Computed example of a mutant assay.
Amino acid sequence: MSEPLLKSLQCLGPAGLHRMAYWEWGQRDNPRVLVCVHGLARQGRDFDALARRLSAQYRVICPDVVGRGRSDWLANPAHYQIPNYVADMVSLLARLDVEQVDWVGTSMGGLIGLGLAALPGSPVRRLVLNDVGPSIRYEALQRIGSYLGQPVEFETAEQGAAYLQGISQGFGPHSAEQWLALSRPMFRAVDGKLRLHYDPRIAVPFAAVTPELAAAGEAALWAAYDHLRCEALLLRGADSDLLSRETAEAMTQRGPRATLHELPGVGHAPTLVAAEQIALVEGFLNKA
Rank of each mutant, 00 (worst) to 15 (best):
G149E: 05
G160V: 13
Y80E: 08
V124H: 10
G170K: 05
A87I: 00
R137A: 15
I144V: 15
I136Y: 07
G160D: 08
Q142Y: 01
N130D: 05
G160W: 14
R143A: 14
V101P: 00
F154S: 05
G109T: 11
G170R: 05
E153V: 11
Q165L: 06
G110L: 10
G170L: 05
L93F: 10
L74E: 06
Q142N: 04
D72T: 10
P134R: 08
L127P: 13
T106M: 04
L96V: 02
A87Q: 05
R126S: 14
R143W: 12
V124Q: 07
E155M: 07
H174K: 14
P77W: 09
V124G: 08
R137Q: 15
P134F: 12
E99S: 15
D102Y: 08
R125W: 02
R125M: 02
V98P: 09
D97K: 00
L96K: 01
A176E: 15
G105D: 06
A157K: 08
A87T: 02
I112F: 01
L116A: 03
L164H: 11
N84T: 09
L93Y: 04
G121I: 05
E139I: 03
I82K: 05
S175Y: 04
Q165W: 08
A118T: 13
A87F: 01
S146K: 11
W73V: 01
Q159R: 15
D97R: 00
A162S: 14
G110Y: 06
L93K: 08
L74Y: 09
Q142K: 09
Q178T: 03
Q159D: 14
V128A: 10
R126D: 10
E177A: 13
E99T: 14
A94Y: 01
P120S: 06
D131W: 12
F171Y: 06
L114E: 15
L164I: 12
S107F: 02
L119N: 02
D131A: 11
L129I: 03
Y147E: 02
G115K: 10
V101D: 06
R137W: 01
G115Y: 04
I112V: 08
S146Y: 07
A117H: 09
I144H: 09
T106R: 05
L114M: 15
H174C: 03
A161F: 13
L141S: 00
L129Q: 03
G166Q: 01
L96A: 03
M108P: 00
A157Y: 12
S175K: 04
L119F: 03
